[in-house]
Design a protein around this nucleic acid. Structure first.
Length: 259
DNA sequence: TACAATGTTTTAAG
DNA sequence: CCTTAAAACATTGT
């Protein structure tokens, strides 16, 4: 998604359409965004977890998160906004579109070229070397009475880990999602740390935009392909998977390998 | 009709 | 102040 809009780097935003009633503008007004971006030039883009930031030269930073159903698109200059297109940036050649039917997405704007606090102070990515085993242990200790599944969904330590990735990570680490975070022994912490990095790296490598609307899939050996409906089989043992609510979310796990 | 959905933040309570 | 559990957000599809 970042790469899609990055196609507009170097282009001047001639006009901006923003629907002020769309919930995605809850952290800043649609007016602020319009004022901030109209006349600005898109100069760079960054990603951290699943958060995106677009730098508009000296004019400001636009950060956005796509929630579950948000998406970015590049359309023709005269593209007519559709029902769920809440923000459209018009350049001479493109329309950069933020589309989001469910509006779990959000965006915000900070004027000036200084990197805003909310972008600078993001937690380290899982794939970053600063995501250490020690940091993981410390966090698990602090959340020791909460189920490990719920803990993996906490963005302040595991940025970008959502429901399917948390299940994939626990399956790979061989840890039962019901376990309390504080109950993991040394080797389980190590396995979890490895699985976190493996799954995030793998997701970044495979679940990426290739071209047009085509996305890659994780390898066929991942839990991913089995987890969406009842009746899935553990890719490692072939045994029946279980699906139930853990930590408030539907969780798919393999009792035959997760203890 | 009721429920669940590839996400994350907010809330109220402990 | 910190931790925990659950609800909330809006729309669509089964």
């Amino acid at each position: 998604m970042r790469r899609r809009w990055a196609a507009g780097v170097g282009q001047l935003v001639r006009s901006t359409e923003a629907n002020p009633r769309a919930r995605i503008f809850r952290d800043c007004s649609a007016t602020t965004i319009k004022r901030g971006l109209t006349g600005a030039t898109l100069t760079a883009s960054e990603r951290s977890g699943k958060q995106l930031a677009f730098l508009f030269g000296e004019s400001g930073w636009l950060a956005l998160h796509l929630g579950m159903t948000g998406s970015l698109h590049v359309e023709e200059a005269n593209f007519h906004a559709l029902k769920h297109d809440h923000l459209v940036l018009r350049t001479d050649t493109f329309s950069l579109v933020f589309r989001d039917p469910r509006m779990f997405g959000a965006l915000r704007f900070s004027p000036g070229k200084t990197r805003p606090d909310w972008w600078r102070d993001r937690p380290p990515e899982i794939v970053d070397r600063r995501f250490t085993l020690a940091a993981l242990r410390l966090f698990l200790e602090r959340r020791k009475r909460t189920s490990i599944k719920a803990v993996l969904l906490m963005q302040e330590r595991f940025p970008g880990v959502g429901n399917w990735m948390a299940d994939e990570i626990l399956w790979r680490a061989g840890i039962n999602p019901h376990r309390k975070a504080g109950s993991l022994n040394d080797s389980e912490c190590k396995a979890l740390h490895e699985a976190l990095r493996f799954v995030c790296r793998g997701a970044l490598r495979t679940v990426v935009l290739e071209k047009d609307n085509h996305w890659g899939d994780p390898p066929s050996t991942w839990l991913f392909h089995q987890r969406w409906a009842d009746g899935g089989k553990c890719p490692r043992t072939g045994m029946q998977l279980r699906r139930e609510k853990v930590g408030g979310r539907t969780t798919c796990w393999s009792p035959s390998v997760q203890h």
